[in-house]
Simulated scan of single mutants.
Amino acid sequence: MTTPLRYRTALIVGAGTGLSASLCRVLAAEGIKVGLAARNTSKLEALAAQVDADTFTVDASNPEDVMQLFEQVDGQIGAPDIVIYNASARLPGRLTDLDPEAVHKAIDISAYGGFLVAQQAAKRMLVNRHGALFFTGATASVKGFAHSAAFSMGKFALRGLAQSAARELAPQGIHVAHVVIDGGIRSAARPDPVDRMDSTLDPDAIAETYLALLRQPRNAWSWEIEVRPWVETF
């Protein structure tokens, strides 16, 4: 028997047209009111109209912006009992060539923003001892690649935040989970190679995994889960 969801309002921070769009659609199909937050919300207009979602502009690395975001969400759609942090910043390059300020900003978006969002989410969820706080990770959350120092640092830090938050908040009724997306996500611009079909992750399938996490009974919560194509070695 499918476990019914006990959630009413969701906020996806770092929303875009890929995984976030799939998450938005799958949550809306469950009757959950969704808010989409991003630096540029113009790219979200069609999606928002499709599922009756609300959009919010935010710089997730700015404390004042994040505080105002949650106040706006509170007033517009209600305090979210699902919050998904999906923002990140890639800054490829050789270690010796990277601009320190750009690295600082990338880590702010990938990790510090996750802290700011988690802090505001937890303050609201703790009132009712109920909620779900999910973080979107990557292969770089557990494996640092060459020419990927900034992204790896940010994703490693985000994973540490998720683990710490899970240990602190789970006993208080808040489900914290970190999802390691171990592979490339399929899109119109990034289809499967013709000689290696099924080698990327379908964003709709990933969204179903998030939904399964939301359905988990609290006596069997996962704090971390990995998803990858079946043809990929690891």
Results as ranks from 00 to 15, higher is better:
Gly173Leu: 05
Ala170Ser: 12
Ile181Trp: 01
His178Ile: 11
Pro193Ala: 10
Gly184Pro: 03
Val180Tyr: 09
Thr209Leu: 15
Pro171Leu: 11
Leu211Val: 07
Glu208Cys: 11
Leu201Trp: 06
Gly183Val: 05
Leu213Ala: 13
Leu169Cys: 07
Asp192Gly: 03
Ala205Tyr: 06
Glu208Trp: 05
Val176Tyr: 00
Asp195Asn: 12
Pro171Phe: 01
Ser199Trp: 00
Ile185Asp: 00
Leu201Phe: 05
Arg196Cys: 13
Ala207Trp: 10
Ala205Met: 09
Arg190Gln: 05
Ala165Phe: 04
Pro203Lys: 01
Ala165Met: 11
Ile206Tyr: 03
Tyr210Gly: 03
Leu169Ile: 14
Asp198Glu: 10
Ala177Thr: 12
Ser164Lys: 10
Ala188Val: 08
Glu208Lys: 11
Ile174Tyr: 07
Val180Leu: 13
Leu211Asn: 05
Ala170Asn: 12
His178Thr: 10
Glu168Gln: 13
Ser199Arg: 10
Arg186Lys: 14
Gly183Met: 05
Pro203Ala: 03
His175Ser: 09
Leu214Phe: 02
Gln163Cys: 03
Leu214Lys: 00
Ser199His: 08
Val194His: 02
Thr200Ile: 07
Ala170Met: 12
Gly173Val: 07
Ile185Met: 01
Gly183Trp: 01
Ser187Ile: 06
Ala205Gln: 12
Val194Gly: 07
Asp195Arg: 07
Gly184Met: 06
Arg215Pro: 10
Thr209Asn: 14
Gly184Lys: 03
Arg196Leu: 15
Ile174Leu: 01
Glu208Tyr: 02
Asp195Pro: 06
Arg186Trp: 11
Arg186Met: 13
Met197Thr: 08
Arg186Asp: 00
Gly184Glu: 08
Ala170Cys: 09
Ala188Tyr: 03
Thr209Arg: 13
Ala188Pro: 05
Ala189Gln: 10
Arg186His: 09
Arg190Met: 12
Glu208Leu: 14
Arg196Asn: 14
Ile174Asn: 02
Arg186Val: 13
Ala170Thr: 11
Arg186Tyr: 00
Ala189Gly: 11
Ala189Asp: 04
Val179Pro: 05
Pro193Asp: 10
Ala166His: 07
Arg190Asn: 12
His178Leu: 13
Pro203Asp: 08
Met197Ser: 14
Asp198Trp: 01
Met197Glu: 12
Ala165Pro: 10
Val180Glu: 10
Glu168Leu: 09
